[in-house]
Amino acid sequence: METFLQQLINGLTIGGFYAVVALGYTMVYGVLKLINFAHGDMFMWGTLAGWGLLTTVLAGLTDLDLAAILAAAVLVMAFIGVMGMTIERVAYRPLRSAGRLSPIISALGAAFVLQSVARNVSDARWRTYPPGLLKELPNLRLTGSVSVSGLQVLMLLVCVAIMVGLYLFVQRTRIGTAMRAVSLDHNVSRLMGINVDRIISLVFMIGPALGGLAGLLIGIYYGSFNFTLGWVFGLKAFIAAILGGIGNIPGAVLGGFILGISETMVVAYGPNVGLADASAWKDAIAYVLLIAILIARPTGLLGETVAEKV
């Protein structure tokens, strides 16, 4: 039971990161029916930008307390948000009427550009965040040997706050309503007086800004990264978005958590069912499960039941 709790916490943490990144895929797909392959790399750029800020500018000014980290978060979100809007303007908008294949190729191109630049900026090395960030957070001992680090709890809380905040924003505000309208039909939205281009720009600012924030959190949490981070996490998050029903915000969150927890549980309980080297088989088993779920529900877990798409 204790092990189960510990593994559940491990899985929730991994899943939380998948979920936040998945939000970016699902929002863009909602309004444009475009799979924004550059999203994973924008997320990695959040890690990279956070590293740059915390090891140079902010390291000189402060002793890296909570205020410095909040400042880094704001700057990273602004930077990645602008990056997202720029990519939409340069690489996607001119291709909006060019069918479905060209924008996807353009998105892959943007992903490779981002990754190559990051590779050169980071010298292709593993880069480490300054040690001891947020280390003053206490470790929580739940029962017996189960321990949750304060950092884990904080990450999970931030991830949940982002998801809930985004959901409320889309469901309860005027701009959110406009986003939902755009996701249903561009032309009709325009007739209703909605500035479709501006809404799309906004989606391309919010999604990447949240992704960038997740990137910064990953950097603080794991302490090190390299430029391939976006590809691996991006792929997993993309799968999480599909699993939950792409275009659907609660679906992306659900997909992220299911993916993180199922990966973890394969490793945790594989040995109990006779698979001694379960970790080596983790991805294979987790993805067979996902294929099975998709066969049973081709539009994803929440793909049909919720009408509103963003």
Binding site: T3, Q6, Q7, N10, G11, T13, I14, I218, Y222, F225, T228, L229, V232, F233, E263, T264, V267, A268, P271, A276, D277, A278, S279, A280, K282, D283
Partner: peptide, 18 residues
């Protein structure tokens, strides 16, 4: 104990718990 990790992963807490 004999197992492998996937070097593309960032998080190894599940196997470390094992």
């Amino acid at each position: 104990f004999y197992d492998a990790i996937n070097p593309d992963d960032q998080d190894f807490t599940p196997i470390l718990t094992n």
